[in-house]
Simulated scan of single mutants.
Amino acid sequence: MLKELRDKKILLSLREVSELLGISYGKARVFTYEQNMQVRIGKRILIHRKKLEKWIDDQVK
Rank of each mutant, 00 (worst) to 15 (best):
Y33A: 00
E16S: 09
K3N: 06
E53W: 07
K61L: 15
I41F: 11
L5V: 13
A28S: 01
K9A: 06
A28W: 04
H48W: 15
K27V: 11
I47S: 09
T32Q: 07
D58S: 14
N36L: 12
E34G: 04
V60C: 10
D58C: 14
N36G: 00
E34P: 01
E53R: 09
Q59T: 07
K54Y: 11
T32W: 08
K27E: 13
T32R: 07
R15I: 04
G22E: 12
K8S: 06
L46N: 12
K3C: 03
L14H: 02
V17Q: 12
Q35S: 08
R29I: 03
A28G: 01
R15Y: 05
L11C: 06
V39W: 08
K8M: 04
E16V: 08
G22T: 02
V30C: 06
R49C: 10
I45V: 15
R49Q: 13
Q35R: 15
E4F: 11
K61I: 13
I45K: 07
Q59S: 10
S18L: 10
I45T: 15
S24L: 11
M37T: 03
I41N: 07
Y33W: 03
G22Q: 01
M1V: 11
E4K: 12
Y33E: 06
Q59V: 07
A28V: 05
L52C: 01
R49M: 03
V30I: 14
K3Y: 02
K54P: 02
I10S: 05
L11Y: 15
R40A: 09
I47L: 05
R49V: 01
H48N: 01
D58G: 13
I41E: 12
R15Q: 15
E34N: 11
I45C: 05
V39R: 03
K27Q: 10
K27M: 12
E53S: 06
L52I: 00
R15F: 04
V30L: 14
I10Y: 06
S24I: 15
K43T: 14
I56L: 10
V17R: 13
Y33G: 00
W55S: 05
I10M: 10
E53T: 03
I23A: 03
S13E: 11
I45W: 04
G42L: 03
V30Y: 08
L2S: 10
Q59I: 09
L46W: 03
L12H: 05
L12D: 02
E4I: 08
Q35M: 12
E19M: 10
D7N: 15
S24T: 15
S18T: 09
L2I: 10
L46P: 02
L5M: 14
G26H: 07
N36A: 11
A28N: 03
K54F: 11
R40H: 09
L20M: 13
V39E: 14
L52Y: 02
G26V: 11
K61H: 08
L12Y: 15
G22F: 15
L46R: 13
N36S: 13
R15V: 09
I56C: 02
S18M: 14
I56K: 04
K54D: 13
L5Y: 12
H48P: 00
I47H: 10
L2F: 14
Q38F: 09
R49I: 05
R40T: 04
R6C: 03
Y25S: 10
